[in-house]
Design a protein around this nucleic acid. Sequence first.
DNA 1: GTTGGCATGTAACCGGTTACATGATTTT
DNA 2: AAAATCATGTAACCGGTTACATGCCAAC
Lengths: 186, 186
Amino acid sequence: MSRVSYSEGMSLRIALLGLLTASGPASGYDLAKTFETSVAHVWQAGHSQIYPELAKMAADGLVAVEAEGPRGRKIYTITAEGSQELRRWMLDHSPSATYRSEESLQAFLMPLLDPREAIELLQRMKVHYETKLAQMEELRRNHPAMRRKGEGWGHFGVYALDLGIRRVRATLEWAVDSIADIERRL
Amino acid sequence: MSRVSYSEGMSLRIALLGLLTASGPASGYDLAKTFETSVAHVWQAGHSQIYPELAKMAADGLVAVEAEGPRGRKIYTITAEGSQELRRWMLDHSPSATYRSEESLQAFLMPLLDPREAIELLQRMKVHYETKLAQMEELRRNHPAMRRKGEGWGHFGVYALDLGIRRVRATLEWAVDSIADIERRL
DNA sequence: GTTGGCATGTAACCGGTTACATGATTTT
DNA sequence: AAAATCATGTAACCGGTTACATGCCAAC
């Protein structure tokens, strides 16, 4: 079992390899669109990042230009080497522990506010997460069988969506309980 | 009420202003240490980032060099302007929605693996989150009253720690349930 | 023929990471 | 005298964001 260490910044490559595996050959333009509607909840990238990355990946033999379409359209396919790379990352790579979020920073600094202000802030957060949760749950409702044959998946990986919903729900509960906690001490 | 828009990258400034508020005047060195033991779970920064940032903040009038100690040690204090900035960020700033995590990307790409492999991956994740959860819960047990007078807080903001625990727990439950789900379909 | 979507790229900038570099003071 | 730790900085690099720039093709 070959121990390979992956640098943090492999993830864009991996996401692209994943999409190419799931939806078959596609152009950079296609991939950018797919990014917006599927992986976006989990990883973001614009075309200005995707085009050069695909070029580098082609140079590294992970993808290949299968054909060239009408207006300079280049269709990329994943190579055997690319598939191998993707599999290795999925199986061997432990996600880096570095975590960063503005919400958590606000949570951390919460004691600096006086109780009334903290409650106000938490209430805004609560509303935000409620709408977010509703959106995600609707997304799931609209795609009960998200793995379509041929297509690979609908709008969002089932597992990732489930994970996302659980996390948002946990955050929402945190906000609600924190409000109650602060009000009790008021 | 002055509407100010904050760029994404204000957070390091805010974290530093927060620490200076909570623990009083401190040097860049001190702040770097405090970062490791407190904010680290929520925001990371090394000294190579902190020193230049403090210099810029001083130039912007958010902090001031209060005194110079033994070996070139510079002690920074937060200014009135700095406090105001911090308050504004806490109250007016809605955290950016951009979310990015390698774990979620693995979750997203999970369907690419065959069931056995997916279970293996999920089991590794499960173990990882169990230990992480245990560590966080111990941290909370050791600091039941985390806001100490004078010091500001112990090792971790109470609210942020609570939020972190809830999220890890949610992730753990996701892993457990996903394993069960896949096994049922096997 | 003009508008709008398809399609690809480059450049400037910014924040974060790693590594390099230096020197003063305290401890052993 | 040597080692450890205090203390501050700089430089190179890399990934991500925003904005700039160009040209093709289809539809109206």
